[in-house]
Design a protein around this nucleic acid. Sequence first.
DNA 1: TTTATTTGACCTTG
DNA 2: CAAGGTCAAATAAA
Length: 321
Amino acid sequence: MESSSWPESLPSNRIKTIQELTKGQVLTNNLREMIGQSEKIESDIKSVNGVVVQILGMFDNTLSIMDSSNLISEPHNPINDLRPPNIKGDQKPKVSEVSDESIKTKTLMKKKRGCYNKRKNAWISTNVTFDLIDDGYAWRKYGQKTILNSKHQRNYFRCSHKFEQGCQATKQVQKINDKPSKYKITYNGRHTCNNLQRSQIIVETPNPSDNSILINFETNTFTENNKVNTCFPSMEHTHKEGFPSLGHLKCKEVSSYDYHTLWDPTVGLSQVSSKSMPLMSYGEDYEVSYSPGVFSSTCSTHDYENDTTEGHDLDDFFFDF
DNA sequence: TTTATTTGACCTTG
DNA sequence: CAAGGTCAAATAAA
């Protein structure tokens, strides 16, 4: 795509942004082709990872460009850019949308009341979404609090593998808006657990016409996917939290090389991070971080929050993970 | 019986 | 002391 083909009225930053996104679109299509050849993934997982890294780089560049300009104020959803061009415009992600706010999340960690010392240096990320998004992890609710000046209660979740694997990841989910429903999801700490849900690539899809792509930015795994509400028709909720189990799906696990390299709990977090998140800020010494990175245009069921002030208002929600 | 959720109490911090 | 975060006993659900 030549920059000279852009209308002169377009700001250069915008052109650069579009170029980056276009590049990402091409890379994503390449990735889709690779996913279509499952044997290639097994034999050449490194090159697949390379493509993922390039896509991540594209997002990084885009975010940098947007950060350096006022483009950030203009709505832009990368999910749409990830969709291959053969997806019709009206085939929007059915339910879940990650807000722009979540995409540009560089959360400055503030010292707050109630923030325990042991957590004050932990990786933090805040997403604002219009639907509750399943991030692929198994969470267990451990608390619920009424927050000052908030209409809705805040729900506290910890990783289900906290005791089993010592995973310290927690998240908070708070409804911040009624109509449309809007949620603030704050992640505290990275997962160090060996969560099977994260290492799977769905290569067979019930509906081949749906080519939407799901990329897990945290694991560098990727999924050619249907909308999950069709992809998981017989979904069993083995996790009480309401997260779908992916174990019974027709999934292909990432090679043991990749899986264990990325998620071996015996590997230090910094090692894991440097390999799995080469483009993101993270770690104990950073106060700025990007969102934990599951951008998804799919959905699944999830009865995440029982907002006692409204009781049932989440019954209709579908989640992405 | 096991596992998950609820909820009041307790802890930490500003 | 107030507010937010976590714990853990009680309860509910599978």
